[in-house]
Design a protein around this nucleic acid. Structure first.
Lengths: 341, 341
DNA sequence: CTGAAAGCGCTTACAG
DNA sequence: CTGAAAGCGCTTACAG
């Protein structure tokens, strides 16, 4: 590959001049500029980003560590992050933690070694020493979706509390009293917040929430299946199940179908995180929708603000309940039948 | 951040020695090794991958350019690619082309600028000058899923021909005669191969395939919806629709539902690419499943072989038909009800 | 086994 | 406006 030296030789100028025209430095003569540009063209020269990064100490790269790419919510988040980053002149490298703290650490370390300019993370756990150290350290950082309490890092997320309350109201209105929840890991903020919001709403409606109706999942499909099987094995199974993410809802559907039961006739189901397929499942699934794209974009903006020396603040956006038929009611209006993702 | 110089000073050795212990070079005294390691620990030193890459001319990074991350097929492909790459000591940077040739070129260029060691691509089109030049150039490259004919690069893909034939046989066996297809872009190999296989199978069964039953899509949901609406507007609509990817099948479902029609009673539907949600759609969708994970892993192995100077060959794996209920038949066996992705 | 030195491909004060 | 030179943080022959 041609280097800046080759270009300089071809154009008959110094490498400094080549560098200047490449970086749009004002003080370059028109003549020098055209000769360099011609040489660049002739050699098919492309600046070596590695060398440039070493010299300037910036990579124009953002790291994004998410808990699970296979989760459509995070896929969409990643996509919006990349889009906004690209618009602002940054690339993004995605690290998929797969809900495993060790893998998460692996990716954080790798990204740090590559000297990314900033880190966007949706932590899988309560914070490993590495994660905590990074947050305290010099690398600009922003949490998206999930965050770690007590760490001084801006958080961009959705508040699902009101929507969870709406969901409980919806379920209660349909006559359901025995409501169960498939919770996410307590070590994640979304895991603990969703169950807490659910608890509060249940209390508000005077509904009991026995331990047997609280299943511990890990945000992945298999755990949703396992927990749901447990619910169905109960002497008195719940009338409704709230899966706190879409993959666990998928697992719940697997379990329900395996028993030959029907939603919502035999058991109602609702999920946190709305995805396009929920419109076409049997039946369409009632879900809580986050403004995913907006979260991703806001997170990037907050991070880039930090990187470029501006201040940035936390952002909290509302989530909303999208009622479909999985809890026992015909869709209330035609618009709810449309895709929302 | 501490540099190798700081470590050397702390350990009382030269940077050369530090570098040697970091790289497990054999000729280092036990004493030097422990002092260096202690210093590394004390300073929390991490080697700068940027500097190392500049010096060694290798980044231990693979680029993966795919046509659409939001397509579950590609999401899964990306995931398996990352897993296998990690196992072999490589990171991967994903570029999402979103089915746009200009974006694809953007990502290829960015990846090349970063001096990735090798490139995995599932081309969005027939090959831009940049893509062609890259394939001819020095960067090790492998095509996954889609490829560009006439370019001397190994291809790792699934052959869906037999499965498409099985699908037509299935449809024919259920009594359907008017079959329509939502094709992908003709400029992609998967786009042209799937329709070609369909054409051949149709001919084999003596079924006509009028132009009106060939809809041109772009592998994204919206095009599936649009094409399906066109089919439904026909004086004689098709009895069955074959969407050549899962997103276009989603769009087809949207269109069918918007008319208040039912699958398979009013119209049968099948898709290329199987995804977990197809088990739970209304009705469960008959689809052609690719060995996606295996494709991703094989592609990485082929690419790494090239990078590390071994020879690598193309790999073709079979796809298979998974019959569910969307074409008019009850599932033939219980196993088809299970998730397959 | 160890260190001094060169060099990877850039950018950027500094001098002119 | 331009070039010579230093230096970013590493690795690796080369000599000892």
């Amino acid at each position: 590959m041609a280097s800046i030296k080759d270009v300089a030789a071809e154009a008959g100028v110094s490498v400094a001049t080549v560098s200047r025209v490449l970086n749009d430095h004002p003080s370059v003569s028109e003549d020098a500029r055209t000769r360099v540009l011609t040489a660049v063209e002739a050699l098919g020269y492309r600046p070596n980003a590695v060398a440039r990064s070493l010299r300037t100490d910036q990579t124009h790269t953002l790291g994004l560590v998410i808990s699970d790419v296979m989760n459509p919510y995070f896929t969409e988040l990643a996509r919006s992050v990349e889009e906004e980053a690209r618009a602002l002149g940054y690339s993004v490298i995605i690290g998929n933690a797969d809900e495993r703290p060790d893998l998460q650490d692996h990716h954080v370390r790798t990204l740090l070694d590559r000297r990314i300019d900033g880190l966007l993370v949706s932590p899988t756990d309560g914070g490993s020493p590495l994660m905590l150290g990074t947050a305290r350290g010099g690398t600009p950082m922003v949490f998206v979706d999930r965050w770690i309490p007590g760490v001084d890092v801006p958080v961009v997320r959705a508040d699902g509390r009101a929507a969870v309350r709406d969901l409980v109201a919806h379920l209660h209105g349909l006559g359901h009293r025995r409501l169960a929840i498939i919770a996410g890991p307590a070590a994640t903020t979304t895991g603990s917040e969703r169950i807490e919001a659910f608890r509060e709403a249940m209390a508000e409606y005077g509904l009991p929430l026995p331990d047997a109706y609280i299943g511990q999942g890990d945000f992945q499909a298999e755990s949703g299946r396992r927990v749901t099987e447990g619910f169905l094995d109960l002497p008195e199974p719940p009338e409704a199940v709230f899966a706190t993410d879409n993959l666990m809802a998928l697992g719940a559907l697997d379990a329900i179908r395996a028993r030959g039961l029907r939603v919502p006739d035999d058991i109602a189901l609702a999920a946190f995180d709305d995805i396009r397929w929920f419109v076409h499942t049997d039946p369409p699934i009632t879900a809580i929708a986050q403004p995913t794209g907006e979260l991703g974009r806001a997170a990037v903006r907050a991070l880039v603000d930090r990187i470029e020396g501006r201040t940035s603040r936390s952002v909290t956006l509302p989530a909303r309940l999208v009622v479909r038929r999985s809890c026992g009611e015909a869709a209330s209006s035609p618009k709810d039948l449309r895709s929302t993702t």
